[in-house]
Nucleic acid binder design. Structure first.
Lengths: 216, 216
DNA sequence: TAGATTGTTAATCGATTAACAATC
DNA sequence: TAGATTGTTAATCGATTAACAATC
């Protein structure tokens, strides 16, 4: 669907989930048609930007009419790969790992937690929902035997690179990293970081300088 | 410290925590001097960008020498407001709220969780570490009586705006929002969102299109 | 002092916005 | 058909990179 050769910028990619979220809300309200101008008012991007963004992936609108909400929602889901199912494992079964294991919305979107791993013998063998916490020694074996796509790193920063190395060796496809460190990962493995403290420190900056963000 | 009138872009602000993190690592290694060129190699920004970024806030370097690691680390901490102490409350005492309450690194950086709130009677009265889970009906009263600076919203999306409204009424200074929705907040209240599903969907896009990120 | 490296200005690059012809 | 709104090109704006004089 993406136009030939054009390289989509990360700025555009990171806006896509937000489009999808607002389109879902419109769907829930039973609205089945929207113009870039109307969408602009509720989502806060300019109408021009909305049209530019969407046209990176094809002409989803119709002149004189606007966009079909259901169709556009569906298309953006496909662009994001949410029509796929991904098998995931969570490494680090502390509070954060458990929070993610319990968060069923990810599962609804196709990200299935198959197992959790920890080094703490007190946690090994427990289950979160129906997801077993296993010994971290078995990560590589488990990935290979169970077709795991994504590894979610919820360890402390000291263990994160070791875990990442195991994931890499086992031919994982992507890593979602919550450890407060930057991981070394080969180019063919996709990496997305969630650096919570960087987000908190940004809020701290804004508080200190009493400045609202211009963008979301 | 910030130069008069110049408005610092969010892009710069969001890089500051990363500078601080790498400088901390250098400190731990006992390195007390670094040039923009050397820092560039380990942090991955261009040397030019590093110098530009830092010069938004003043001349911290010395020609022919570079930057003093300890001093720069300290300065960036101050710029981020990490020399302050913030009182926080966590609203929503589910797994995510508990994970944040248990994450002592935030406390070390000056963000003190004073109380948690929930509407679930089974949770009310429990303690996470020494942080009590209280009835969400008491949020407004508690904020006013305890000098709370930051509200951390860990509820589901259905309750998030209601909670935000209570925080706003109680003159909170900042909101750190983990609920998967955009909040309506007046301009004088600082808002920082952590939209986990947007991050996960971005990873999904990268997997589908097998593309590494050019940045971070 | 000579060499190194900053601070800062200028050039480039990329992303956003504006404008409008195409067309439903 | 006339009006509305897209898709797309051109203009603008902002952020990044390059270059180099200042200076430690």
């Amino acid at each position: 669907m993406q136009k030939s050769n054009t390289k989509i910028s990360m700025a555009v990619i990171r806006r896509l989930p937000k489009y999808r979220r607002y389109l879902e809300e419109l769907l829930d309200k039973g609205i089945n048609r929207i113009s870039s101008r109307e969408l602009s008012k509720i989502i806060g991007f300019t109408a021009s930007q909305i049209r530019q963004d969407l046209n990176n992936f094809g002409g989803f609108g119709q002149q004189g009419y606007g966009y079909n909400v259901a169709a556009l929602y569906e298309e953006i889901g496909k662009i994001l790969g949410l029509d796929n199912v991904y098998n995931t494992i969570i490494i680090g079964a502390g509070n954060l790992g458990q929070a993610i294991a319990n968060y069923t919305n990810f599962e609804k979107a196709g990200f299935i937690p198959k197992a959790m791993f920890d080094i703490n013998p007190r946690l090994i063998g427990l289950k979160i929902r129906d997801i077993e916490i296993m010994d971290a020694d078995n990560i590589e074996e488990y990935i290979k035997e169970n077709n795991i796509d994504i590894g979610i790193i919820c360890t402390d920063k000291e263990h994160a690179q070791d875990v990442a190395d195991k994931l890499i060796k086992s031919n994982i496809k992507g890593i979602w990293n919550f450890a407060p460190t930057d991981l070394n990962v080969p180019e063919h493995i996709m990496l997305e970081n969630v650096h919570l403290s960087e987000s908190l420190y940004t809020l701290s900056f804004l508080l200190k300088h009493n400045r609202e963000q211009e963008d979301v």
